[in-house]
Amino acid sequence: MRKSVLDHLLDWSGRIVLISILGFVLLPFVVVAIASLNDGAILSFPPKSWSLRWYANAFEYRDFGAGLVNSLRIAAVGATIALIAGAGFAYVFNRYDFMFKGLLNTVLMSPLIIPNFTIGLGLLILSTAASLPRSIWLVIAVHVVIVLPFVVRSVYVSLKNFERRYEQAAESLGGTPLHVLLTITLPLLLPGLISGALFAAILSFNEFTASLYVVNQRTQTLPVAMYNYVREYADPTLAALSVIYVAPVAAMLLLVHKFFRLEKVLNVD
């Protein structure tokens, strides 16, 4: 079949549009990478001289190290709690009818609609009213609330596609409900559970707005530490940190993609 001139025109303009959009998406990250190598304390394009000193600075700056440790702890603990609570809820929501099921679902999913700053403010007011200390647990609580809906969705999708016959076969072979849960249901749901937890961890690691409301100097997360840095200094340290930041997140994302294919996870296959 021969293509007409119009077809060629469409093909080429399509390619150009696609490349420019992808360029738009990647532009800031490329620019920030260039800026991080700028030797001067004041940014200029193109940089007049190059150096790696801002990377050294990023590593030395105390708040970043402390923030990273906090963020990793919060992401790990928060994702674990969200996984346990979310998977449990997805299971009972998928399998059973019980009182207030719909209401429970609405409340747990509401953080998808409620702006993060409202969630942060709400839990801040609540903890103050209950005279709870502003500890790291408050930050973790905020993160659990925010990432929980994503875990529930991920696990729920796996459960919906789960073949109940496996469990019935196992039961007919003498497996008690607990035995079946441990030897059949959990192993087969593992991909959904892991991808849910990984998503939760990435989201939690990146969360900024709600955290800003509930952290203090001691519990501040890496994004909050970065925000505070920009407000005080204009040098390219943060550009260097951004480049460093990309590495672990990209690695995690590629990992998810390799094992579970993002197209599947996101239902766009």
């Binding site: 800031p28 620019v31 940014l43 990146n206 900024f208 994004p223 951004s242 990309v246 997140v249 995690m252």
Partner: peptide
């Protein structure tokens, strides 16, 4: 897909800071 998703996974601060460098008066 991966490129489209990058902004989502790099977090608000990195993303916004990068745009500040792009859009600033002496920016890129």
């Amino acid at each position: 897909l991966l490129i489209s998703l990058t902004p989502l996974f790099l977090g608000e601060i990195v993303r916004t800071y990068s745009w500040m460098i792009v859009l600033g008066n002496r920016g890129f």
